[in-house]
Amino acid sequence: MTPDAGTSATAAGTAWTAVRDAVAGLLSDPLMQRALVAAVLVGLVAPVVGTYLVQRRLSLLGDGIGHVALTGVALGWLVGSAAGLVPRDTLAIPGAVVAALLGAILIEVVSERGGTNGDVVLALLFYGGIAGGVLLIGLAGGSSATLTAYLFGSISTVSTGDIALTVALGVLILAVGIGLRAALFTVSQDAEFARASGLPVRALNIAVAVVAALTVTVAMRVVGVLLVSALMIVPVAIAQIVTTSFRRTMSTAMAIGVGVCVTGLVITYWHNVSPGATIVVIAIAVYAVVALAAGLRRRPEGDPHPDQADDVDLVTEAT
């Protein structure tokens, strides 16, 4: 063995030990443990709901709900401080849940009525939600800085109680989103056909809206209101580049969701950057790489319908 090789072997060994220690340190940190549980759950559930939203071409619904949830946060805060609760944000998350549910159902009902443009309703909720949140938090004696934790996420402040709520809601979302997959697929794919089959279209659409609202409130702690929707939509956008089936799109998106959430979180363990922003930037980077790779790999040159019989007779028969 040459001295050189010995040195590099030792260096590799030292590097390995360092990585092992770092991982062990990361996993033994209680704060990180809670954050990881939250990240895995959010990464898992957000794409389930997102798949239905993308299928219904309602990619921005999550944003609308998120903005409304912000008003709920402020309202919860206002009620909490009026009631003298400690800490004052005890009711912030419950407030967000209630507001998000109401907002989601409102969007669903209004867009079903069709009287008003669904797009405009969504816009009204966006602005109303943000303005209401800022206004109410001021009345509650806070500042808009108080809202920042909810706007951009604060995974490091996740408590054991938060984790319990997150797990409970996550299980509920998965139960609805996966248990009712066939029915939700049918309704999201073609609502008119579903109605012509006697399916309870409105109830199923509201079920999607409700799980979307719950997802927003669960994911709010991890990535923040402003980026919640990205976790629902971007993994689905990545998955559908490489898949052909609905089922596979959903499962691939779930895997991607967990992957980007955990990766982003782990990076923030060593680098002082925003977890939510890191997660979303990673997701979008993955999208760019996959889209580019897919574009390079198969340039469609072949006839997409080789088995199609010819419709037009090119030879004019002599008469």
Binding site: V54, S188, D190, F193, A196, G198, V236, T244, S245, T249
Partner: peptide, 30 residues
């Protein structure tokens, strides 16, 4: 029921088999 439609595609990819399977659901069978 067969609707008047040009496209059977939604926002997410779905196979022909998945779309046809959705016809097996109706009121009372989810």
């Amino acid at each position: 029921y067969v609707p008047q439609r040009v496209s059977a595609a939604g926002g997410v990819p779905a196979t022909a088999l998945e779309v046809v399977t959705s016809g097996l659901l109706y009121r009372g069978r989810l």
